[in-house]
Amino acid sequence: MRSLQSVLEKHKFFEGMETSYLELITGCASNVRFKTGELIFREGEIANHFYIIRQGEVALEIPVPGRGSITTQTLGEADVLGWSWLYPPYRWFLNARALESVRAIALDGECLRTKCDEDPRLGYELMKRFSYIVMQRLQATRLQILDIYGNRVNEGHEE
């Protein structure tokens, strides 16, 4: 447990978090591994965890009938995977697949939600940190939607 806590306290996501809260969070943590190609979670399933990726790449995919699986984003070392555990109805809205052998720390969502309900300050801390990630991913998605490399006619300066 001590080694898990030391990994968590060095992670950017938990930077500046009180030791007592880190101890509480570590109580909900466990080491996990996924093989190449393995589904970490599937769209529609109950979201009971989030993951701190320690090694390997994970693809976030949306299966589209007739077009295959569209990867919307990949996450790698030090990234946080999954926030659906925090917001009702606690279900994944896309698939996460290991693109290579993945090592991660899984944090039990139900366990964390219980602790957050008991101590709203912990809940606020986690909510702030997850909101930041959601905001970053929203910004990135906005740029993706803009399709900035699309065709554009400007004969003024074409590299």
Binding site: G68, I70, T71, Q73, T74, L99, A140, L143, Q144, I148
Partner: peptide, 23 residues
């Protein structure tokens, strides 16, 4: 290297290039 969109056999990074900067 990262790409904005992909379907199929790409095993590299997916996401806008700005997401690579903090890493």
């Amino acid at each position: 290297v990262t790409v904005d969109h992909t379907i199929g056999n790409w095993n590299g990074h997916v996401g806008v290039v700005t997401t690579l900067i903090p890493k």
